[in-house]
């Protein structure tokens, strides 16, 4: 097994609001190994984006506060790292791509400049070499007529092309970890498949680990080896893609899977999990999913279950049902 590249231990990220300090990420443990593709799944507001921005330390401090835990990257705790060190990490050792390719590029700079800039920040290369490398990166991410595109401005490209450019920017310094925050959500389905394909190929070729943040289990099935399901700032289930998709143990994961439209079933209405993700701070005690759960028991409202192994050691779930099953066995 490859050594762990990134290790989040009991990460707490809080936000100062008018209603006091609220936990957006509430005690997350997560490990990503070199070269691995891990999916982070959950609805909007479950804390997956905050987790990724915490790793990059890009949240607006002091509005956001890292209230506890650690983020170990190759053994170094990024939460204790100085800003100067973080600048070396960002874009160089850990890169990030975002959901909105339409607005994530600077409209006033050419594509070539925006790729070359990253290189020039982190490597001792001249303007010319950076420009040449930018064209090379554009080719690598499958952009035709790369020389022409390098001289183009973002508004001259389509959404899919822009996301490829974002990937080129992210990968030009050969980072060890790529955080992709819903990179395909804003794209057409066919373009989505192309981008996922590209990410998979690049992962194989360069060995860059990918942390794939998404709400789409289809994307996870396509791309990832391991999945972490988040709900209201906590991990509720994690395991291999196969285990999670074929044998989900947490009612929330089961709900997510049931709400995927299927071609081989006739249904009047698509299933949807009733209710909404609770707002941070609205959770008093017990399991956070209990108010929306169809299996809720008295204990669910009183005590938060632990994340424990079920069926297989690597498949863990945070649900009283599992505990009950284990006792029964």
């Amino acid at each position: 097994m490859a050594p762990s590249l990134l290790e989040l231990t009991d990460l707490h990220t809080h936000f100062a609001t008018d209603r006091g300090e609220l936990p957006a990420v509430d005690g997350i443990d997560l490990t990503i190994r070199s070269g691995e593709i891990v999916g982070i799944v959950g609805e909007s507001g479950c804390g997956k984006s905050v987790t990724s921005l915490s790793i990059m330390r890009l949240l607006p401090e002091p509005l956001a506060r890292y209230a506890g835990g650690s983020i170990r990257f190759k053994g170094e705790d990024l939460l204790r790292a100085k800003e100067k060190r973080m600048k070396q990490v960002r874009g160089n050792e850990i890169s990030m791509i975002f959901q909105e390719p339409m607005t994530s590029l600077n409209p006033l700079l050419t594509i070539g400049e925006q790729i070359g800039e990253t290189l020039r920040v982190h490597r001792p290369v001249g303007r010319k070499d950076a420009a040449a490398k930018a064209v090379e990166m554009l080719r690598k991410v499958g952009i035709p007529r790369a020389e022409g595109v390098a001289k183009a401005y973002p508004h001259q490209l389509s959404g899919g092309m822009r996301q490829r450019v974002m990937i080129a920017i992210a990968l030009c310094c050969e980072p060890e970890l790529l955080i992709a925050d819903e990179p395909t959500t804003a794209l057409d389905v066919t373009i989505q498949a192309q981008i996922l394909d590209l990410m998979k190929t690049l992962n194989r070729e360069t060995g860059t680990a990918i942390m794939m943040i998404t709400h789409d289990l289809g994307v996870v099935a396509e791309l990832c080896e391991r999945v972490v399901v988040m709900y209201a700032g906590k991990i509720v289930e994690e395991g291999s893609v196969h285990d999670i998709l074929t044998d989900p143990r947490h009612p929330y994961t089961q709900g997510l899977i049931r709400s995927i439209p299927r071609l081989d079933e006739e249904r009047e209405r698509l299933y949807s999990i009733p209710g909404q993700v609770p707002r941070p701070g609205a959770i008093a005690q017990g399991c956070r999913f209990a108010p929306r759960c169809e299996h809720a028991m008295p204990i669910c409202g009183e005590q938060l279950p632990e994340l424990i192994a079920c069926a297989r050691p690597a498949h863990r779930s945070r649900c009283w049902l599992n505990t009950a099953q284990e006792v029964a066995n």
């Binding site: 874009g91 990030m96 975002f98 994530s104």
Partner: peptide
């Protein structure tokens, strides 16, 4: 507040940059 500023920060640029 715009997305491309977040991108610029994620690239590892300095504040002045």
């Amino acid at each position: 507040r715009s997305d491309y500023i977040r991108t610029a920060k994620a690239k590892g640029l300095s504040q002045l940059g």
